[in-house]
Design a binder for these strands. Structure first.
Lengths: 159, 159
DNA sequence: GCACATTTACTCGGATACTATATGTCCGAGTTCAAACGG
DNA sequence: CCGTTTGAACTCGGACATATAGTATCCGAGTAAATGTGC
């Protein structure tokens, strides 16, 4: 799994805690965690295409969350960065070579594929059950001073 | 996820249904599903290193299951092929750049990492709950003639 | 003093190189079997 | 006829190229704001 997923998740939490509805430039978000600025911009574009953040061009522009953090699940972010395809892709190798039975007969669903899809469904369900707001809330409870610090740093004048 | 996982899973099921305790050459197993013979041999070596199959050198050699199919889970096979590392790897980017708080203070576990690990645990649990014997049993029930066909083809003389 | 046109600076956005992983291939070490040889 | 020796064929095993996807970077299009100008 690409590391852009971790970047995007932290970014969404940062915006939820310190964004305050204002647009924050990609470069500033990247600098906050010392990430490669231009490449991180690419990940943000993926989030924008998925409708998780909205991009604002021009001066005072940047990115802000497109909807309340309660409505942004981990699953949404992972799909936006990694793509919608499942990790396991059944190539139907049972239909190839001497192992293939009668091509006209219906062999029914591939049991191996079913098992792998079931496991992946469990993974996706667990991701869909966690939202950005969950993390933000836990951070507020654990360290109440952190949100204000993020807010101030993200809004600071550009150097 | 690499496609070798699918190959290895089908291979284990084939051995469970038609291996009959005898060693089957890698080339024969590969030909059964029209797979690249030498590269597939590589995947079998990974299964052998993981203790899922045992390799027998020399003429009449090949691979056979190392233990009963009931004791071979999907999780075992996936770990053998893909490696034991989790898909999501937390790089602790929160500790880098201006976002990092006091380096001496303990920030507690990364909540994002915890959520991702929880989801991956659900995935692994689902995979660990399915065994090669489950698939083999379902195939026997659905198409009782298939096991004998596999058995005969795998044991056929080399051409 | 106010409205407007112009310039400027700043932002995102897609097109372009580079690197790591996964895929595919090759040849050598080891082992078993079979056949030939000698007793 | 039987035991031993020798050879050969077949197997796995790790080392060596290639293709694909992820990583990183650059420069151009667009926009809002600030500035300067005219009324």
């Amino acid at each position: 799994m690409g590391e852009g997923v971790e970047w995007a998740l932290h970014c969404c939490v940062d915006l939820a805690l310190g964004g305050a509805g204002r647009a924050v430039p990609a470069a500033r978000l990247a600098a906050y965690h010392d990430l490669p600025p231009v490449y991180f911009n690419k990940q943000l574009q993926a989030l924008a295409r998925a409708g998780i953040v909205v991009s604002v061009p021009g001066p005072r522009g940047g990115f802000r969350l497109a909807r309340p953090p309660e409505q942004i699940t981990f699953m949404d972010v992972v799909v936006a960065i990694e793509g919608p395809d499942p990790a396991f892709r059944c190539a139907e190798i049972r239909r190839r070579g001497p192992g293939a039975g009668d091509p006209a007969a219906d062999p029914g669903p591939c049991l191996i594929d079913e098992a792998m899809r079931g496991a992946e469904l469990a993974w996706r369900s667990a991701l869909a059950a966690r939202t950005v707001a969950d993390i933000a809330g836990a951070v507020r409870e654990r360290a109440p001073d952190v949100p204000e610090r993020i807010r101030g740093w993200l809004a600071a004048s550009r150097t």
